[in-house]
């Protein structure tokens, strides 16, 4: 790109710009819901964006790979037989002010769903998506993105990356799609002066130092899981602490297990795709009644093998965790990622 890769926008102009984006596409941004929890959600006006949020209760996959999603419809029309019609979602979506960990989660899903054969439902939504991230300056109690190489600042993967710097936002361009958005917003952005770019670099260093206390011991866990060096008794003890809610799968930005379900009435129907969780006891139950992973211990082991083994890390370019910390908040038991990696490292509960 020949144009400068960084811009500056003032706060008042930022709101104006968000207003323009809302006119152009569905804008999904952090928003305070009833009760005060912040969720990535559709915003209708710029003031609904919770710029000061720390973390959202939901990952972005809810919009790209929804919990319940229609795949196809059918009709049985007399002599014409069965007519099938796939259901694609081609809504233009701009994801605004998403945290670096969540954006990294989307990049992970990109790799999962673009493997042959491509998942056309995800890819269609993704092609109609623009990702505008917001760097983090304060770690949240539960998060550990530095260990997962997924924040607090990103080098690539975003279309635009915003950093709050005193009165202004620095805007880094990651893709041509991002540059397009800048170009379309005449007069709102100015090329970023060098001091501002330097200020962002200084901030990143300062912030990373603060994030460094938030740990998950991946290295030891990866090695031990890969080579099956975790004793069964330890899996067993972790299994005692799994209440099979599936919450970890559902809040995880990188989990993608699903099943399908059909509905039909009077000659027409549809097939939905629903999230599933590999920790559910009937996840591997076969029609014959045979269940290869009937033991909870084996399901816990399978989950963390998928998340942590080199075999998968090699294929998906990283282990299956972006350090968002949502599993810490949502696990009914105590099998969140940092606790599990720490247990595996120590070899004991």
């Amino acid at each position: 790109m020949s144009q400068p890769a960084a811009y500056v926008i003032t706060r008042p102009r930022l709101a104006e710009w968000v207003g323009k984006l809302i006119g152009r596409a569905q804008v999904i941004a952090p928003r305070r819901a009833q009760g005060g929890d912040v969720a990535y959600d559709i915003v209708e006006t710029p003031d609904q964006v919770a710029w000061d949020y720390s973390t959202s209760i939901n990952p972005l996959k809810r919009f790209l790979f929804p919990q319940g999603d229609e795949l196809l419809r059918w009709q049985r029309a007399g002599d014409d037989g069965l007519q099938l019609e796939p259901t694609y979602d081609e809504t233009d979506r701009i994801f605004l002010a998403v945290r670096s960990c969540d954006l990294s989660g989307v990049l992970f899903l990109d790799r999962v769903f673009s493997r042959e054969p491509e998942d056309v439902y995800y890819m269609t939504r993704r092609q109609h998506s623009t990702l505008i991230s917001l760097t983090c300056s304060e770690p949240v109690e539960d998060c550990f993105c530095v260990c997962a190489d997924a924040g607090p600042f990103l080098e690539t993967g975003f279309d635009l990356q915003l950093t709050a710097l005193s009165d202004d936002y620095l805007v880094e361009v990651g893709t041509e799609k991002g540059q397009e958005l800048i170009n379309q917003a005449e007069g709102l952005f100015a090329p970023a002066p060098d001091e501002l770019i330097q200020a962002r670099r200084d901030l990143e260093k300062e912030v990373e130092a603060r994030f460094a206390e938030h740990k998950s011991y991946f290295a030891a866990a990866l090695r031990k899981v890969t080579f099956d060096r975790v004793p069964d008794e330890l899996w067993e003890e972790m299994a005692d602490r799994c209440l099979e809610c599936g919450g970890c799968s559902f809040v995880c930005p990188t989990c993608t297990c699903f099943l399908t379900a059909d509905w039909q009435s009077e000659g027409e129907g549809h097939r939905d795709r629903l999230w599933d969780s590999c920790l559910y006891s009937c996840y591997t139950l076969e029609a014959s009644g045979h269940n290869p992973r009937a033991q909870r211990r084996d399901r816990v082991k399978a989950r963390f093998f998928h998340k942590l083994s080199y075999q998968f890390a090699k294929e998906l370019e990283t282990h299956g965790c972006v350090g968002c910390g949502r599993c810490i908040a949502t696990c009914l038991g105590s099998n969140d990622m940092p606790t599990v990696t720490a247990r595996i490292r120590r070899g004991a509960i």
Partner: peptide, 18 residues
């Protein structure tokens, strides 16, 4: 024999190791 659902390596039900 495993519980193959999607058939194309996406839904994860039939995973054995990797």
């Amino acid at each position: 024999e495993r519980h193959m659902r999607c058939g194309v390596g996406k839904c994860n039900h039939c995973l054995i190791g990797d």
